[in-house]
């Protein structure tokens, strides 16, 4: 499954997310045991989905499951807390631990900055925090207040490389500019909140870089059309 498009280019997968997470069937081996007991639960479809690739793709993540150790209720299944490289961790003081699915649900409600912090917590968390849906949710939530419609944001950002990529690559330069800071300077206050114009610029940067990186890149003058691309982004998708 493609739920965790850990790359930045998962645009197309992301277009059908509404349908995707509802499929209990697809969630495969890692999905929670508890769900087998409550088939009618429609709750964390997204989280469920997110857990699938965990076992598929992530070598350096034993920690995540291990931390489930204290939580006997859900740790039972496919991954007994084997220790790989992070031994001993499960035996710390008993602090209740959310499973991956629930942590995902929590992160779904977190701001982009919190996602960034979360990514620095541990390898397991980083893997989780790469999920495009988290960045999308944060982005849409934060920017909806600036008058960008969800639909438009999704259309543009997903077509041009994804929300996480947008944050990673195209927010900071705009922040710098807003703060009047030269590109070389490393430290200093940058504004957290972007204004509407700055968001526009970020989106333009995103779409520009998308076009520049296309295999048969269009001639440079095409860049001038960026504003139009916003409206017609869908056709590129």
């Amino acid at each position: 499954m493609k739920c965790r498009s850990d790359s930045t280019g998962g645009g197309d997968d992301r277009r059908i997310p509404v349908a995707a997470p509802t499929g209990d069937g697809g969630s495969g081996e890692t999905s929670k045991k508890r769900r087998t007991e409550e088939p009618s639960s429609s709750s964390s479809g997204a989280g469920e989905c997110s857990s699938t690739p965990a076992s598929v793709q992530v070598p350096p993540r034993p920690t995540q499951r291990e931390q489930l150790g204290p939580d006997a209720r859900e740790g039972e299944g496919e991954q007994p807390p084997v220790d790989a490289d992070a031994g001993g961790e499960g035996e710390q003081e008993r602090v209740p631990d959310l499973g991956e699915d629930l942590l995902f649900e929590v992160l779904m409600r977190a701001e982009a900055r919190t996602l960034a912090s979360a990514a620095c917590v541990s390898r397991g968390w980083r893997q989780l925090a790469r999920d495009e849906r988290l960045w999308e949710a944060a982005c849409v939530r934060e920017w909806a207040n600036l008058g960008f419609s969800e639909q438009m944001l999704r259309m543009i950002v997903l077509s041009f490389g994804g929300f996480r990529r947008l944050y990673v690559q195209h927010i900071r330069p705009v922040q710098r500019r807003a703060a009047g800071m030269p590109p070389g300077q490393r430290r200093g206050q940058l504004p957290v909140r972007l204004g509407r114009d700055q968001v526009q610029v970020s989106l333009s940067l995103l779409s520009t870089s998308f076009f520049l990186s296309m295999p048969n890149a269009p001639p440079p003058e095409k860049d001038k059309d960026n504003d139009k691309d916003k409206n017609g982004g869908g056709q590129c998708g």
Partner: peptide, 23 residues
């Protein structure tokens, strides 16, 4: 819970969630 994480450094989050830094 997401509010509990808000504005916290990675270190502080590790503390709240009892996570070991394996980086």
């Amino acid at each position: 819970i997401s509010e509990m994480m808000k504005g916290k450094s990675p270190d502080q989050i590790r503390e709240v969630f009892n996570i070991k830094n394996d980086y």
